[in-house]
Nucleic acid binder design. Structure first.
Lengths: 231, 231
DNA sequence: GCGCGAACAATATGATCAAATTATGCGGCG
DNA sequence: CGCCGCATAATTTGATCATATTGTTCGCGC
């Protein structure tokens, strides 16, 4: 029962008794995560207060939290904007995910319940639909949800939070790249992963997830190397 | 009302005026990091406003940032306190550092300059003094500075930030443990590490740092396993 | 043991101040 | 006569605060 920082939304059944700064944070986080905010775009605090109809303080706190997680950055002295992902930062993210993802997948595999398997299968099925429909936003959201479900299964609060934080960094760039490439030839080794997890084969599951992640990250890197700038 | 009589920041040079929320954040972070706040201790926002002589908004933002990094937690619904490190969380931190530290050390080794070596040597020398003097706070601070200097040398903004964030989680517990054990028999494989970095021997450097970190973390785990509760 | 209310602490707002960016106007130079 | 650069004004935006509001805790009387 611990999501005090609120970077994870475990259940969609959220209590509406949550403070405003928490709600604002989640909305802003999702906007970053699923590409509603473009890389380089400025994020003004007063713009958000009017756009979201909220007061200044909750918005400020939400922005600070996003900055703290690397989802936003302060440029120059005070202005805040969505970071433009640099090539060396992608390298770092690749290195990190190359360790985090198989590690968490292994732990998830040995802890997986039947409910977990059906949940993963369901998410992946919905993800296929989104791909076929060309629903970019749906793809991004379901893909993230798939991986985060595995994080949750791993029962590693700290490591999951760290791995999840990486998504905030490549989210905006991912949106741009997918918008260019299209949703058709996106990596999807999810079925192999779910299968391996269901069999309890941690090695195979870790390999499948690693392959999935690596493929996606390398596509991101390649697309970003082409057009060094993404606006 | 309160005009800063001067920017007498101890070590850094002429730092242009940083916003209050940034200064408060750093002070609070250091308090967590070096054990001025005990695990489980409550952190009230109004207490800090009066203690630090600051307004509410900067304090709130600083606290949010610390929560976001796992340095503080919201207990129940609203109250904020320093987290009590649980044994399973230590396991996670150990796993993470077991990957982060050698990775960053390798990168640091191939990028090390002469200035880096002298800096590391200087920090480690001061650290020895602190140990001899039984200066616990000095030990904690210099030990952290030593490792963070290596992070900086690795030139990996994202990974460094993640690795550094882990310190916020075990900082308070580390203080308690060191207070019990004393500063004498604390791990210090720093000299071997600096030596290896100076030789450009990435493998040896990574091994030394790994040993140093593992030793410290295992001591932490052992001490915490003894007295499950730390007050 | 169980409400009830007082005290306390966090949440949220809008006002106010300060900084930075953009717009503007003036004079000199080509 | 028109263009450029610099200085200054205007506007936008961020930082901070005092205060009102809301929710939580805890002691007191029943």
């Amino acid at each position: 029962m611990q999501h005090p920082t609120g970077q994870m939304t475990p259940t969609p059944m959220a209590q509406s008794r949550l403070p405003a700064h928490e709600l604002i944070y989640r909305r802003l986080r999702d906007m970053v995560l699923y590409g509603d905010l473009a890389p380089g775009q400025a994020v003004t605090i007063q713009g958000l207060t009017s756009q979201l109809g909220a007061g200044m303080t909750p918005v400020r706190e939400a922005i600070r939290r996003l900055i703290s997680r690397g989802a936003l950055e302060t440029r120059g002295n005070r202005r805040v904007s969505v970071p433009r992902l640099k090539i060396e930062h992608i390298e770092e993210i690749i290195q990190a995910r190359k360790w985090f993802e198989p590690h968490l997948t292994r732990r998830a595999t040995v802890r997986a319940t039947a409910a977990d398997i059906t949940a993963l299968t369901g998410i992946d099925s919905a993800l296929d639909d989104a791909i076929l429909a060309g629903d970019l936003r749906g793809y991004l959201e379901l893909n993230h949800r798939f991986h985060r479900r595995i994080y949750d299964m791993a029962d590693s609060a700290i490591l999951s939070e760290m791995a999840d934080g990486l998504w905030l960094r490549f989210g905006p760039a991912m949106r741009v790249v997918c918008g260019r490439v299209g949703t058709q030839n996106l990596p999807d080794m999810h079925k192999a992963a779910v299968d391996a997890i269901g069999r309890g084969d941690a090695d195979a599951a870790a390999a499948a997830i690693s392959g999935d992640v690596l493929q996606g990250m390398q596509q991101l890197r390649a697309s970003l190397a082409d057009a060094g700038e993404v606006e």
